[in-house]
Write a protein that binds this DNA or RNA. Sequence first.
DNA 1: TGCGATGATTTTGA
DNA 2: TCAAAATCATCGCA
Length: 381
Amino acid sequence: MDDQTRMMTGLTGLGGLAQADVGDPDSVRKQQSLGQPQQDIGDILQQIMAITDESLDEAQARCWPEESPAHWGGSDDPTEGGRAGGGMAGGGLPLNFQHRKHALNCHRMKPALFSVLCEIKEKTVLSIRGVQEEDPPDPQIMRLDNMLLAEGVSGPEKGGGSAAAAAAAAAAGGSPTDSSIEHSDYRAKLAQIRQIYHSELEKYEQACSEFTNHVMNLLREQSRTRPISPKEIERMVAIIHRKFSSIQMQLKQSTCEAVMILRSRFLDARRKRRNFNKQATEVLNEYFYSHLSNPYPSEEAKEELAKKCGITVSQVSNWFGNKRIRYKKNIGKFQEEANLYAVKTAVDAANVSAQASQANSPATPNSGGYPAPCYTPDGRL
DNA sequence: TGCGATGATTTTGA
DNA sequence: TCAAAATCATCGCA
């Protein structure tokens, strides 16, 4: 059966019942004299229009009088909220009006008429509004999500931020105790942020779920008295979710800010340097001046130096970078130091050669590159 | 407290 | 990508 046929049939049937039940003399006369379906439709539409003039509360209160059976295809449970006002049947309105509405509600074709109204509504209102509803995922939310994931705030608990903390602590070059203190401090603060974030997120999700359920129940209840399609309920749920996701975005944004502040504080701490101890400086200087022709230690040499000095490879690189540029800038100033280390290296080499009976071991492999210092064989300048 | 020394970071260029 | 150069920020001493 197509919509039009169904509507016509429904309206005709409804009209007949309305006339019979209501006992309206005019309607009876009209039916008797005209006997036309169009007249019935006009009557029934007038009755429906009269209903739409009421407020929703009035309608609900009067649509479910005490004796009213569940003819709208809904639940028979009398405890349901929408019928709370059932005892108010009548509400001071003319009795024939109440009877007419009751007749409408109880009529067997009411569901058919109702479904037609739903369809019309869906085709008109929803199709217009629904055009822009399929939003692509918000890029800002995606960025925030990615950042929170990378920092180890969202997602499964992992090394995340602590790995960054460890790297930064290692680069700080402080004593192992200092690093571990900084590391654990960073981790503790990050864990705190993580905990607050998850607890707030849980609250939002719970509130969203509760509110969505509440609205859905309300709409389902109202769908008994006005045409609300499941699609419309879905749309409303989507609107609620959008509203709540904007709140979530604020939470994510402030969490990101907190992480950035924590991170910047931690990274600032990296700038707090400590001078290398005397032994470490000596080892580095020894290498530098004994390789003055080519003061570029290989990766292996850097690792070995780092191990000897108790610093990181990158610190060794920094040291050599600084040393090269400062030596080059002011050779005169470093001359004395260079001579000192050259003598030291020569003495060490001599000792080694004496012990190993290898007289030809080169003490200073300098040839070209950075200018070598001047010194006498006895160690004096 | 000022200043030179020094380790770290950033910028620039090959 | 690496090294040079510039710059920053802190240390440590007089």
